[in-house]
Computed example of a mutant assay.
Amino acid sequence: MLHKFRTSAIAALLIASTAAAPASAWGQREQDMLKGAAAAAAVGYLLMNSRAKAQQPARSQTGYYQPQTSYRQPQTSYRQPQSSYYPQPSYQQPARYEQPSYGSSDVYSTPAARAFNSYPLSDRRRIQARLSEWGYYNGGIDGSFGPMTYRAVTAFAGDSQGTTELTTVAGAYDFYGRLLR
């Protein structure tokens, strides 16, 4: 009750101070500014008191304070468990890199391979494309000499003129020259 009286008294004093000022001495702008300042002060005071009242704990009818309940959301954290059920991946590098060997001879060191690799990439792709057109090669047209290219070259040479010309680099050049025509 005393609080309401105090609030009303302050508001009345602010209004009276604006009304008591000599109105004839000020212009309309000055009077309007003073009224706005008084209204802002009164509203600010009322808001401040209402906030203070809201922060006070609630009293029951018996006069005892009732605690206010508040709920706070528990924080959840998502961590990957560090247990033996989730083994960490491991990579072991091989001791040394080795080219695969195919049969008794290594296809990468044959005269056919040396002659094939001496051609420019465009010619090597044309050789593979020709062998593919004729049904001897079914790999990718990438211009690299591997086991599939070796099998296609030897199969085509065996069907056409024999594989004896692939035993020397000069014979392999003649063979690939006929393929590129």
Score class of each variant (00 low, 15 high):
103 G>R: 03
88 Q>I: 08
73 Q>R: 13
113 A>C: 12
57 P>A: 10
46 L>T: 11
77 S>I: 14
107 V>W: 00
65 Y>N: 11
56 Q>K: 08
106 D>I: 03
74 P>A: 13
84 S>H: 06
95 A>H: 06
48 M>V: 10
119 Y>A: 01
101 S>Y: 08
47 L>Y: 02
72 R>D: 10
86 Y>L: 15
98 E>Q: 15
59 R>I: 10
117 N>E: 03
44 G>L: 01
104 S>V: 15
45 Y>E: 02
112 A>H: 00
93 Q>F: 06
67 P>T: 14
44 G>Q: 01
41 A>P: 01
67 P>H: 10
50 S>P: 00
44 G>K: 00
49 N>Q: 13
81 P>H: 05
117 N>K: 09
112 A>G: 00
100 P>E: 11
45 Y>K: 02
57 P>R: 07
74 P>N: 11
50 S>H: 05
70 S>E: 12
108 Y>N: 01
118 S>P: 00
83 S>A: 06
55 Q>E: 11
53 K>N: 07
54 A>L: 09
117 N>P: 00
96 R>V: 08
118 S>W: 06
86 Y>V: 11
91 Y>W: 14
80 Q>G: 00
118 S>F: 04
106 D>T: 04
103 G>H: 05
48 M>T: 12
74 P>G: 10
102 Y>F: 15
98 E>R: 13
87 P>T: 13
80 Q>N: 03
66 Q>V: 15
72 R>F: 13
96 R>W: 07
61 Q>C: 04
83 S>P: 01
54 A>V: 04
50 S>I: 05
113 A>Q: 01
118 S>L: 07
84 S>C: 02
62 T>G: 10
74 P>W: 01
96 R>G: 03
101 S>T: 15
106 D>G: 03
111 P>L: 02
87 P>K: 12
48 M>Q: 08
95 A>L: 11
55 Q>S: 12
53 K>S: 12
79 R>K: 14
113 A>E: 00
51 R>K: 10
54 A>K: 08
118 S>H: 10
56 Q>C: 04
101 S>E: 12
56 Q>F: 01
75 Q>Y: 11
86 Y>E: 03
77 S>K: 12
96 R>P: 00
63 G>Y: 02
